Simulated scan of single mutants.
Amino acid sequence: MEYGYPLNPDWTNEEITTVIAFLEAVERAYEKGISVQEVKEKYHAFKEVVPSIGEEKRIGKQFEEASGYSPYQVMQNIKNATTSRVKMQP
Rank of each mutant, 00 (worst) to 15 (best):
T18Y: 07
G68P: 03
G68V: 07
A29V: 00
A29W: 00
Q89F: 08
P9A: 10
M75W: 07
M75P: 01
E2W: 05
F46M: 11
E2A: 12
V49T: 12
E65K: 14
A66L: 08
R28Y: 13
A21T: 10
E27Y: 08
Y30P: 04
Y5M: 13
A66I: 00
A25K: 06
R85H: 11
M1F: 06
G60V: 05
K79I: 02
T18P: 02
R58Y: 07
R85F: 10
V19L: 10
T83R: 11
M88T: 04
F22T: 00
K87W: 08
Y43N: 09
E65A: 13
S84L: 12
L7I: 13
S84H: 15
Q62G: 06
S52A: 12
V19G: 03
K47D: 08
E41W: 04
Y43P: 03
E38V: 09
S70A: 03
K32L: 08
E31M: 12
E15T: 03
Q76I: 09
K40P: 01
Q62D: 14
R28F: 08
W11C: 05
E24I: 06
G60R: 04
V39F: 06
I20H: 05
N77Q: 14
S70C: 08
D10W: 04
Y30A: 03
Y69R: 10
N13Y: 11
K79D: 11
P6V: 08
E38I: 09
K42D: 02
I59A: 02
G60A: 08
E64D: 07
I53C: 06
S84F: 12
T17V: 07
V86Q: 01
M75N: 07
Y69F: 15
E15H: 13
G54M: 07
S67H: 02
R28S: 09
E24S: 10
E64T: 07
V74Q: 04
P90M: 14
P51S: 11
Q73A: 14
T82L: 14
P71Y: 01
Y5V: 11
L23H: 00
V39D: 02
V49L: 09
Q89N: 13
T82W: 04
A29D: 00
E15F: 08
A81C: 05
E38S: 08
F46E: 03
Q89R: 13
F63M: 00
S84T: 14
M88S: 05
A66N: 14
K79N: 14
A21F: 10
S52I: 11
M75K: 01
L23Y: 01
K42F: 02
N77K: 15
E55Q: 15
Y72Q: 12
V26K: 01
I78W: 03
T12Q: 07
P9T: 04
S70Y: 05
L7P: 03
E24H: 11
A21P: 00
E31I: 15
E64I: 00
V74W: 01
Q76S: 11
P9G: 07
A25D: 12
M1R: 09
T83K: 14
I34T: 06
P51F: 02
V39A: 02
R58E: 15
V74G: 01
M1P: 05
P9L: 11
T83I: 02
Q89H: 12
T12Y: 05
E15N: 12
V49K: 04
Q89V: 13
D10N: 13
V26Q: 05
